[in-house]
Nucleic acid binder design. Structure first.
Length: 259
DNA sequence: ATGTCGCATTCCATGCGA
């Protein structure tokens, strides 16, 4: 079973890229972030014509997440529990049926949090606390769970081209990374880190200042696996090449194969 | 290089978010 995640930075701008990815990589499940459109504007017909069911949690202008699946899928909730006042569309969850057993998949667009001296940063930390609470429930249920998405977290110095340049950024602050470790300490496995210790594996390159050409990237898109899912992990891959396409997203897909 | 995108609106120019 192949599960991928991709922050597309506007689904309407990236529809040709998305359809090409579905054709060439053939993921069973694809989690999308930053749709930047309302539900009604999501290109559902085109995606269904490619063979995928869609769960869409959109929002006008910003945010927005979706889960696409070519296997049977049941929605289990949109919006991250724990804060009734949070109206930002950053979380969708579903259970996908697979021959290897059902897998619960979440598509996550974790808040950026910059600048850290504004209320954006405590919102990010609160979101991470709520995500940890939700993940704890799912791990306790001993399900196969894959938390996939743009976490806006650089876990370690080896995940950034120049750690010093990111000191003080909300993606790399100690409090951010501490909470990410708390999440992992529930027993979750970072799929890429289960397969390689290599430095310099990135999933995002800024549009500005020739970041792609200079390989000034960061690794912030992750797939975190519960023990039941980690036991089925066969490989993890970053589809770096699409960053070189015409009119690309600033993020590339990351994917895993599960038995 | 403060270097790019994509969205929205007071709409063809600017502010915001990233």
């Amino acid at each position: 079973m192949r599960i991928a995640t991709w922050n597309v930075n506007s689904i309407r701008q990236r529809l040709p890229h998305l359809l090409a990815y579905l054709r060439s990589v053939e993921p069973d499940v694809l989690c999308l972030q930053e749709l930047k459109c309302v539900d009604e504007a999501f290109p559902r017909m085109e995606v269904e014509a490619a063979g995928y069911r869609c769960i869409v949690h959109g929002q006008k202008g910003f945010n927005g997440v979706a889960i696409l699946s070519r296997k049977p899928m049941a929605a289990t909730g949109s919006g991250l529990p724990g804060d009734e006042a949070d109206i930002q569309a950053r979380y969708a969850e579903a259970v996908v049926q697979d021959d290897g057993g059902p897998v619960r998949v979440a598509s996550i667009y974790l808040p950026n949090g910059n600048p850290p001296d504004t209320d954006k940063y405590p919102y990010k930390l609160g979101f991470m606390d709520r995500l940890t609470q939700r993940a704890a429930e799912l791990v306790a249920a001993e399900e196969a769970v894959v938390l996939a998405g743009d976490f806006n977290v650089i876990p370690e110095p080896r995940d950034v081209y120049d750690a010093a340049a990111w000191t003080g950024d909300a993606l790399f602050l100690p409090e951010t990374r501490r909470r990410f470790r708390t999440l992992l300490n529930l027993g979750l496995t970072d799929a890429i880190r289960a397969t390689t210790d290599a430095a310099g594996l990135y999933s995002f390159w800024d549009y500005q200042a020739g970041a792609w050409q200079r390989n000034k990237g960061i690794r912030i898109d992750h797939l975190l696996l519960s023990p039941r899912a980690a036991d089925r992990l066969r490989s993890a891959t970053i589809d770096k090449g699409v960053r070189g396409d015409d009119k690309p997203s600033d993020h590339v897909p990351v994917r895993i194969d599960l038995a």
